[in-house]
Every structure is written in C-alpha cells, then in structure tokens.
Design a binder for these strands. Structure first.
Lengths: 246, 246
DNA sequence: GGCCGTTATTGATCTTGATCAAGTTACTCT
DNA sequence: AGAGTAACTTGATCAAGATCAATAACGGCC
C-alpha cells in the first residue's frame, strides 16, 4: 500500500487515536485494490470478512428483497463502511457496488475484532463510529416515517445547500435515479415533484439546484436538527449521500 | 437499589463481562425509580444524561416532527435504551413514554463514558450492543423501503409467531394503534389490511392471531433473514417491538 | 353492573405516489 | 461525429394508502 494512502487512513476518526504500532499491525494484513465501475463488491448475505475503506471513487450501498432494490447510502473517500457486520461477524445486510472506478482498502475483520480488545483508544473510536452510524440510520428512519416525499426532497435539497456552505446554487452529487431510490420514491415521482417545487423556492436545471426563495423552501422542509443534523460524523461514514459542491 | 435488580442488570449482555468492582462503581451512582403509566420519560432533543434500563413495565420510543408522531420501538424488561445518545453526549433523537407502570434504572452517562475507557470487557460489550442496534435499524429501514404495508404486516405476524416458538396462534403484544405506527401506516389501514389477509392464511380475532395456512402467509411475506432476523440481540434492545406470547 | 373514555372497525372519499408508455436529452464508446 | 445506451422528463392511468366520519367494541373504574 502507498504511504499516502496509509496517511489518509490514519487520519480517519476510526484510526486516528490508536497506537502507531497497532495501526501498523492492522495495515500489514490489509491491501488496497482498484475496482472498475459497476462492480458488485459485496453481496448482501455474504459473510463480513473485510472492513472496506474507500480511498478514491464512490460506492453505493443498496438492499434487495423480492426482486426490488433500494439505495441505502453512497460512500465517498475517505471513509469506511459495514463496520457493524464485521464486528458482529455476521452476514452483510446491504450489498455494495462501485459507481465509478474506485480504490478500496480491505482490512481483515478478524484483525479488527482482535485489535479493539488490545487497544483502548481504538475501542473508543469504534464505539463512537458505531454510535454515530446508529444515529444516522435513526434519523433516516424518522425522515421516511414522518415526512412525505415532497418534504423529504425539500429537506434534502436544503441540507445539501447547508453542507456546501449555505450556497444558493449547487450541483447534485448523485444521479437523480439514485437520489430517488435513496429518498424512497420512484425516479418519475422525484422528477415531477422537483418541477412543482419551483413554486416553493427552488429551481432545478439539469443537475443544478438553485434556491430562489430559501424562506419558502424552509417553510416546506421544516428542517430539524434531530433529523437533518448537523451531525459531524454522519456525512463521513456510509449513512448518507455525499456532500454537494457549489 | 434492590439486590435482585442488580443481579438482573448484571445479566444483561452490556454488563455481563465487566469486572465486578467496575460494575459496582457504575451502580453506586445509579438509582431505580418507578413511573406511572403515560409519563414522558424523555423528550427528543434533550441532552442525554442517563442510560435507561427497564426493569419492569414497558416503554415506547417515538419520534415527532411537525405535529406528527410515529412509534419507533417498544422496550421491555430487562433491557437498555438510548445508549448511542449517551455515548455521543448528544441530544436524544427519540422521545420515550411509559406504556404502563414502569420501573427504570438510570445510569449517569458521564460514568458510562468514563467506564468503557477503563474496562475493556465493558468496551467490547458496548461495541457489540451498538453494532447490533445499528443492524436492527438497518433491517427496519429495509423493511420500510422494500415492502408495502401488506407485506410488512404479513412478515411482522410471521416473525412474532417464530419468536413465540413457531406457534400458530398468539396474542399481539401491543395495541394495534401502536403496531400500525411502528409499521408505518395508519390504524385504519392496518385494520382493513388485517381483514383482507384472511385470504392469505391468517385470521385475526381481537388481539389474537391465528395462522391458518402458514405456507400461504410465507408466500406473501417472503421472510428474509437479512430483514426479519434471526438476530439474537435485536429483540432485547430497543430496536423492535416486544415478543408475542402464544 | 353500568358508565365513560379509549381503541378498533367499517365505509366513503380523496390524495399521494406507483406504474405504464412515449418521448427527449445526455452521455459513452468506438 | 454518430450510433447506441442510459437517464430524465412528461403524460395518462391506476392502486395504495390517508383522511374523514360514524359506529362498534373493549377496558378500566367506581
């Protein structure tokens, strides 16, 4: 593995505080690998052998049931995914596929499980990471159960604006098809609703979002810090869609 | 606190493996308290000062937004809830109210956070608890996004039957109103759908469920271990509704 | 037992969102 | 550049589920 990769991984909350020697032990049995676009990295139900760290590219986490499929999250560099399955030594609950050419580091799950018994700082980091992930999914479930699709779209658009620094205009970080699935609706419905949202203070031009009347959009979205954050770690791990850039 | 309460708490996965001395440290600053029915124990957004352990009774976890409300889980003895908020030292994402007279032990969150730095076995237990809770919520989100309400009801009924030991007849462990909210639908819709499910192998008589043609119900529910479990810890913590008794 | 408030059911209607079916635009690949 | 594919949009229709309204059943409580 490259030196610069090791440094990036070392900067993750998960690995930041552990002893250098222990970090090296973990990394010695890990390896980086590049995957082409559209490759299924993980199939739900498979045993969780490796913690995955995305170095470059992006990965979609999705779930399947009875011939249906939905997007659960998109993971961007540099962050880890499916930590919980590794820890429980249980089958993956989600599948994963690359959205583009992606470079990933694979850390053997057995080494992880051994390590947090030996390194307290690492154990604490794992605890914090899991607690954050848990809270992210709870937020997500709240949004799904308490909001209708119009409100989910509005709050998503608003949150992306905040994450990009409060800008009024930005580009959607993912395809609309995928966004629709993430928000729990069909692509057609997203498209239609985006159009009707022009009356509520946001204009869509292709992948570009322009907030024309923030107050009106806020009145519709009713953003709530207990659903929409801010939550420092939520956007870094695999529990949300990636951040938009202005 | 009573000796028998301490013993029950000690048997929880979370506290089972830690050193006795450390357990006592945690318990010395904790206290048990009884609450009447219908009391709001926690309001979402409040700072997470205490880990809650239910000794007797039952507690509903619910979420509110914009005047709407939905049930997220029901916690039964003996188990803990809102561990993640305590760990993150962050506001509660969910509210909690007693469904009946309930006895609860409150453990100061600051003591918890100090303790998993000192006791590795406790840290490992916290890691396992959080990983399980995370997976439970993911299962829940999958069910909400991939299944329609008819399928959610069918799989819920089937799962309860399994949890009660594979019995063909059992009593619903919660009010239908609450079940409807947990499953993400209105009470009217649950009522109506339950009726139409008679054609699919399950009969409802008040709170009693009688599975008349299991194969037919299975064909509709398409139970999936990656959504419906089994998952040893899921039912013990605050991530699911309680288990039915036959 | 009978009263009262809550929960459950049932029916009628309405809204939201899904589905089906074209079209159009955008992107990729050679 | 142009063909081919995939993504997006738009319209028409349909189905699922919500809402509103009224009644029925249940569960505590004196």
């Amino acid at each position: 593995m490259r030196i610069e990769d090791l440094l990036e991984i070392r900067h993750l909350h998960l690995f930041r505080d552990m002893a250098q020697a222990n970090f090296e032990v973990l990394m010695i049995s890990s390896y980086a690998q590049a995957f082409p676009q559209g490759l299924e990295l993980i199939r739900q139900g498979d045993p969780a052998d490796f913690l995955h760290i995305v170095l470059e590219g992006s990965v979609e986490l999705f779930a399947q049931w009875s011939g249906r499929e939905c997007t659960m999250a998109v993971v961007r560099p540099v962050s880890t995914f499916i930590l919980a399955a590794n820890i429980r030594d249980a089958p993956y609950l989600m599948s994963a596929r690359t959205l583009e050419r992606t470079r990933i580091v694979l850390v053997p799950a057995s080494d992880l499980r051994a390590m947090f018994r030996r390194d307290t700082e690492f154990a604490v980091a794992v605890i914090n990471e899991l607690a954050s992930s848990y809270r992210s999914v709870v937020r997500n479930a709240k949004s799904l159960k308490l909001r209708n699709s119009r409100e989910r779209i509005a709050s998503y658009l608003l949150r992306q604006s905040q994450l990009a620094g409060g800008v009024a205009s930005y580009v959607l970080p993912v395809e609309k098809r995928l966004l629709a699935s993430y928000l729990g609706m069909t692509a057609e419905n997203l498209s239609r609703t985006l159009r009707t949202l022009e009356a509520d203070g946001v204009k869509i031009d292709g992948a570009r979002v322009i907030i024309t009347h923030r107050a009106r959009l806020v009145a519709l979205a009713k953003p709530d810090r207990l659903i929409d954050g801010p939550d420092a770690v939520a956007e870094q791990n695999g529990s949300g869609l990636p951040v938009a850039r202005g």
